[in-house]
Amino acid sequence: MVSPVLFWVVAILTVVPALSLLFARKAVHIAMSIVCVMVGLAAAYVGLDAPFLGVVQIVVYTGAVMMLFLFVLMLVGVDQREDTRETIKGQRWIAFFTAGGIAFLLISVLGRVSIAPQAARVGNPEEIALVLFGRYVLVMEVLGALLITAAVGALIMTHTPRLTPRRTQSEVQAARVLAGADPVNKPMPGVFARHNALDVPARDPEGKPIEHSVSRVLEARHQMSDGDEFRTRLENTSNPEDSQLPNGAPSADSDERTPRIGEEDQK
């Protein structure tokens, strides 16, 4: 007999995370929930006297399959957000009624059967191996072939042949100039701005800041500082002692982080 505690633990550990399949927004959350379901199922297997299968479940599903899912999620971008509005008319109702219908039908049948379980045969590796390499040895071999085929198939599927000729560096450059880009490198941030910090834009010959010299990420985070603003900041914090310090290092109190452009606006 299986202990009821184990059953209820397993039931909660599987059904609740499984519901995230229906309600969670982010795919990564769902994947982690399914990992939880897989672990719960492994526990169920152990509880059902199939310890070998429980271990295999952990290794194959949580260890390999779900990690593969996560890899692919990362590959296609975790920000692949899903529009939750239903596009197909009636699809929600169909899903609800079919899923509910299947559950209802199966449970109604299962609730009416009464079975007396036989004495357990523990599925340890040795026992499993005897059955696997005994009666099912042919299936086993065929499945081996299937796995090889699947691996090769995945290789073929994800292999993309080069359809266009390889572009040389000069061609890339020519295309870029044609597209109206700067013929030369973008200026580095901080150049001619009296400061070489990454968040300070460079200056053009007229002294105007070149906005695009600062990384796009800093700009998006509103962490870019203006050159003029930085100069005044520098002058404000300068004190006579500065000149006395060796190497012109700023004094200790100047480490206090000053609010950057944009941060003040947010506040």
């Binding site: 197909i88 699809q91 079919t98 899923a99 219908g101 299947i102 039908l105």
Partner: peptide
């Protein structure tokens, strides 16, 4: 044939429900 994979999946599942229903109701 509206091209929606999920509609096809729904068709399959509706068929499954019907088959199960026939087996369950007919078998009992």
């Amino acid at each position: 044939q509206n091209g929606q994979v999920r509609s096809y999946a729904a068709t399959m599942l509706v068929g499954l429900v019907i088959v199960v229903a026939v087996i369950v109701v007919g078998g009992l």
